[in-house]
Design a protein around this nucleic acid. Structure first.
Lengths: 164, 164
DNA sequence: TTTAAAGTTGACTATTTTGCTAGGTTAAGT
DNA sequence: ACTTAACCTAGCAAAATAGTCAACTTTAAA
């Protein structure tokens, strides 16, 4: 499991898609504008995502992309795996020349670590991230409202003190 | 927290170093030979690791590298952070033009994810990986011994049956 | 005290990946 | 027909990756 900007772009785009796909398909042009990712790069990414059955492409006017499944069934690990190269995995080519030294055991350790991260990301779905997103934005708005209340309160206090 | 081959090389090399640093310093030449990483590339990586105070370089004959601390105090996240670029972090440059859309919230989500992975890797030390390594090799040896026992058992059974 | 082994350092090169541009073709709606 | 948007292909510049080479320090041994 590699974690690079490419995977981040893919996850970002999929999040945007999930967030905006209530009724109509979402065009890559829209995603490109909102997330400031170039259209052509998005096309590359979605070409892979489509072939991995993560999204569906709908052609023609009114077309665009939709999620191939509900947001709670799409996990982050799969998105990243879809856009990344197949990951040549072993430097030691599978089996042969490897066990003569303990050289490749460290390699196994890394792979194990990588698998753990993969499992971790497999447990996180788009739906969960959207939920978190929602919670955050609500929290932010509540903070802003709270600040406004405080501001008004101070304002009235100030007025009150002037009237004494 | 990025996960690339560069970080993997660094962790692999550090594991090798930890594994072989009982008494003498370990030369990069040895690590290069064991882990099939080019000496010069190792030099680059260890240059960064040294500046990050992860290892100590000892010059002259009989020199080499040692861990700057005990293996149970060196975690994976720090190793990877040491060899990676400082990670420009935000595409949106800190604060300014970002909150007008919800564009950067997905970015925040990714950063949060990245932080979680970082925390996860911070909790894993070289010592733990070596332990796992040890357990695995012991398990492997035990498996082999077990197979030999079974083999011998079958063999004696065969001999016994022939004697009937 | 030379000398040479062992390590450090920096500059330099080749390859791969990344992100993007430009140009099309194909399918579907108006 | 015309437009819209997916889809495909080729290429390209910048960056990261992986490695090379040569100059320079330190220090143990001669």
């Amino acid at each position: 499991m590699r974690l690079t900007t490419k995977g981040r772009y893919a996850v970002t785009a999929m999040l945007d898609l999930a967030f905006h796909s209530d009724t109509k398909p979402v065009t890559l042009t829209d995603i490109a504008a909102r997330q400031t990712i170039s259209l052509s790069y998005l096309e590359q990414l979605f070409s892979r995502l489509r072939r991995a059955n993560m999204v569906k492409g709908i052609r023609g006017p009114g077309g665009g992309y939709t999620l191939a499944d509900t947001a709670d069934k799409i996990n982050i690990a799969d998105i990243i795996a879809a856009v990344d190269e197949p990951l040549d995995a072993t430097k030691c080519g599978g089996e042969a020349n490897c066990q003569k030294e303990q050289a490749c055991l460290t390699h196994d350790l890394w792979m194990g670590l990588s698998e753990q991260i993969k499992d971790y990301l497999k447990g996180i779905t788009l739906a969960q991230l959207l939920e978190k997103h929602h919670v955050q934005s609500v929290a932010k708005r509540q903070d802003q409202e709270a600040e406004q209340v405080i501001e008004i309160h101070r304002h009235t206090e100030l007025l009150a003190s002037l009237n004494e």
